[in-house]
Design a binder for these strands. Structure first.
Length: 354
DNA sequence: TCTGGGGTCCTAGGACCC
DNA sequence: TCTGGGGTCCTAGGACCC
């Protein structure tokens, strides 16, 4: 299993359009205005040297890198460039499973994975002028983790053979799938390193994290996992739109206006998909940062835009406290899923306008 | 340093049924 | 007059990832 990850993808794509920015501090996020409520999507390596990180408020980034160039996120363009990268990966003959704009698993059967990885990097660079790094593993977890050691512009192999030597002493937080919360809970059990996790009593892990997750985290500590690379096209569960208001809003009129706009956006994605909607949901974030969700199944699957909007507005009227200051509103819809026995859900146009 | 947006999957509790 | 045990569905919330 190979894991291919583009280096500073979003920043690198922007630099291709603006060659004068090569090597400079570039921060991509929000609408590119560092005084707004938004966060960093990607920072160039030069900006990272100043301490700018993904997920950081743009305001903070501007304080750390006052001379950086701030650019708006242009998702459509990244999607197009990403598509070209994935075509190059498929042309290598590997089975390609796309994970996001800038990464994919490759399944191959080759004698010399390092030279294959080198060829992949060279092909991507030649076709797109983008640099990448490749992790080689005997399963997905190890390939994914290997990429971290390959970056930038490199190749690294992580298998059962060197897993302990490379990973055992590292904090569990570095594992793919262990976030801040789980790391803290594990820490409460005295489990701090990957070696601790690998050796942890399965019953203790199950007690803390549940039977399924407990088992899964234990395997993660040992670097175990699936090595299946699956290239069947992804069927999205749902679509959503959310906005953080630049200034908090309040009152039923503001709520309804926002929900109408968000729903119209979601319905664009639903229309492109063509499957009926089976459930709608809201995400509500009151000031200062109290977040809650509400969702409701529809009585019957529908392709009628008006019905979806009515369901969203009804849910909003029933569950948003119009007296409180709102920081964010989000609308999510879930679509009917194929039953999984090869019987697809019919994809036809949506009715109505909203 | 006041904390985006778009996703996925898992868990837990209550309702409901037999 | 109070209540077992198993199963499924629905909803809310939590955690994680890019």
């Amino acid at each position: 299993v190979l894991h291919v990850d583009l280096d500073e993808f979003v920043a690198a794509v922007e630099v291709l359009r603006r060659p004068e920015l090569a090597g400079r501090e570039v921060v991509v996020g929000g609408r590119g205005d560092p005084t707004e409520r938004a966060v960093v999507s990607t920072a160039s390596y030069a900006a990272r040297e100043r301490g700018v990180r993904s997920g950081m408020p743009l305001r903070t980034a501007a304080r750390r890198a006052p001379d950086a160039t701030f650019l708006p996120v242009d998702g459509e363009h990244y999607t197009a460039v990403s598509g070209r990268v994935m075509e190059v990966l498929r042309a290598t003959g590997a089975v390609v499973e796309v994970l996001g704009w800038d990464e994919a698993f490759l399944g191959v059967d080759v004698e010399d994975p390092e030279s294959f990885a080198g060829r992949v990097r060279a092909d991507v660079l030649a076709a797109t002028r983008l640099h990448s790094s490749v992790g080689i593993g005997d399963n997905r977890v190890r390939a994914k983790m290997a990429t971290g050691f390959a970056k930038p512009r490199g190749v690294f192999r992580l298998t059962a053979e060197n897993w302990v030597a490379v990973m055992a002493h590292r904090p569990v937080r570095e594992l793919w799938g262990v976030g801040a919360k789980v790391a803290a809970r594990l820490g409460g059990l005295g489990i701090r390193t990957v070696a601790d996790l690998a050796a942890a009593d399965p019953a203790v892990l199950a007690g803390e994290l549940g039977p399924k997750l407990g088992r899964w985290y234990g395997s993660l500590g040992r670097g175990e996992g699936s090595s299946v690379v699956d290239d069947t096209p992804w069927v999205p569960r749902g679509h959503s739109r959310e906005t953080t208001f630049q200034r908090n809003v309040r009152g039923p009129e503001a709520v309804e206006a926002a929900l109408r706009e968000l729903t119209a956006g979601v319905l664009e994605d639903v229309a492109a998909d063509g499957r009926p909607v089976v459930r709608v949901g809201l995400k509500i974030r009151y000031a200062p940062f109290e977040t809650t969700t509400r969702s409701r199944g529809l009585k019957a699957p529908t392709r009628d835009r008006g019905e979806v909007l009515d369901a969203v507005l009804a849910l909003g009227a029933a569950s948003v406290d119009g007296e409180r200051e709102l920081r964010l509103l989000g609308v999510r819809v879930e679509m009917q899923m194929p039953r999984g026995d090869g019987d697809p859900v019919e994809r036809t146009p949506l009715r109505g306008r909203v």
